[in-house]
Design a protein around this nucleic acid. Structure first.
Lengths: 294, 294
DNA sequence: TTGTAAGCGTTATCAG
DNA sequence: CTGATAACGCTTACAA
């Protein structure tokens, strides 16, 4: 374009306060440039990390990301889902296949979900992480392990549950307590698992926040971590390094999963179906685990 | 419509797997039925409550809500903002007027923000809440109050800061420490404020999470709450009732603000400008405050 | 009750 | 390099 006309056009645009109509543009080019990321709840640092990874990966391709949770923080009340004009949907930690119909045939990739649900899934090696955690406790000599697990049904929780049961079989006693992630529940259930007789010498938690509840309960019961009770968390939230003693926890590649999910989704939108490798998880050893008292 | 034709149409629709194109529909009716809610960060229960209120109020009018944070959890890295096709924008706890230009002239209401920024603002009585908290401590007889405040500039923090300074003037000594909300910072700064000589007998925190950090620091320094140090939080997160001792904190009407914000926004979209009353805040007295040792 | 046509604001194509 | 025109898929108004 000639610089002269370009200038003329730009001035006219400014004078008329011209704003391109993005809806019309989307209609014409047949894409909105936006994908939706759906989480169970908003206020969880793990999901925030997934989101950060997804958002940055999407931005690299000029795609925007908006978020929507399906529950409020108490984890009870379902929240309405926006039926929006979107290029794609990325769900995280949701197994509800009924929910997936909300978006008809818009491209959909699931993070941290059952890979057998017909939706391309990007997953972390949840089983491997759990295995490392259990093996760590067994190798320290623990013979009675508590498992403060999620009462919610989900692929992650299911696989973790299975691994913990299988791996402890004939090697240690296992005491399970199911809980919601709501703080009040977690606090009560943490006390319950520490109140079992005989008491477990170590507790495995589905989540770092639950580990906080266990610390809290231990404190109330006059037990010391890790002298009286070892604790292992999951997610490696920033919080984990600030607890005293610092929390041994399973690190999950949250950001990486978010970024990877977006790549698979964008590929899917372009018509290509990609292979999805399991993302690596590692046990981060800190101060909250040691051998049980003899 | 005749039931016969209706049936015929519906069958044809099913057979052809017809999906209405929402973009085309939006172009024609000139609205998308979606508003964007923007928060500083994702993983904060306070914002989650605001979101729940906003989402439910919007759903009542058939409007969907999507969310977007402008920072990642560390509070450092800015995240890209989706420039989307939206009917309106609700920002929460953001003062950055530059950011507001992102949405051109789409209707915009600001929550918890400076009312003098030309954008309709729905606010809580932050000043009143802070006043109650300070007065409570003064009436207990505290003569040296610590204020663990946010280092970020924002309308809320500014007003609270002003109230705390004005209200303590000539009535108590005031020791201020500014901090970010990042856990590592908070932990360090909590220790700093308790390390001051002479030590404050009470600490006021910008946020319940900061109060957790203060509890933590107190514990490390061998101080007991509230015998050695009184603590007051802000937000009344679910967490507050689970701390031991239970936290005295300023309750902010988060859900109400979200719902009210949506109402004002929808009215604005319809062309009406509404008055915005200050939403009530109350100090919730629990166990973390008492008179100082004499 | 059913069918037709115009128009929303873009982008893309094709003459001038 | 410029200007006119069709098409995206829907809603709405009006005619058959």
């Amino acid at each position: 374009v000639s610089p002269a006309t370009a200038e003329k056009v730009e001035r006219a645009a400014r004078e008329l306060r011209y704003r391109p109509n993005l809806v019309a543009r989307s209609l014409r080019i047949e894409r909105t440039g936006t994908v939706l990321v759906v989480f169970p709840v908003l206020a969880n640092p793990f999901f925030a990390q997934v989101h950060a990874g997804a958002t940055r990966a999407a931005a690299e391709q000029g795609v925007g990301v908006v978020v929507c949770p399906i529950q409020d923080e108490d984890g009870r009340e379902p929240l309405p889902i926006p039926s929006q004009t979107l290029d794609g949907v990325l769900t995280c930690s949701l197994d509800k296949s009924q929910l997936w119909e909300t978006w008809g045939d818009t491209p959909h990739v699931a993070l941290d979900s059952n890979p057998r649900h017909g939706v391309p899934a990007v997953n972390m090696d949840v089983a491997g992480g759990a295995r490392q955690a259990v093996d760590h406790l067994l190798s320290l000599g623990h013979k009675h392990i508590g498992f403060l697990r999620s009462e919610r049904e989900a692929w992650t929780f299911g696989t973790r549950h299975r691994v913990v049961r299988d791996r402890t079989r004939r090697r240690a006693r296992l005491t399970e307590v199911a809980t919601s992630f709501a703080l009040a529940d977690a606090a009560g259930n943490a006390e319950r698992i520490l109140g079992v007789h005989p008491r477990p010498t170590a507790v495995l938690c589905e989540d770092d926040n639950l580990a906080v509840a266990v610390y809290h309960a231990a404190h109330r019961l006059g037990l010391r971590v890790p002298e009286d009770i070892s604790v292992v968390g999951c997610d490696d939230l920033p919080l984990a390094r600030l607890m005293s003693p610092e929390l041994t926890t399973i690190r999950l590649p949250a950001e990486e999963m978010g970024a990877h999910g977006i790549k698979v989704l964008l590929a899917l939108m372009a018509g290509e179906r990609q292979r999805c490798p399991l993302l690596e998880t590692t046990l981060v050893l800190r101060e909250s685990t040691r051998a049980p008292r003899s």
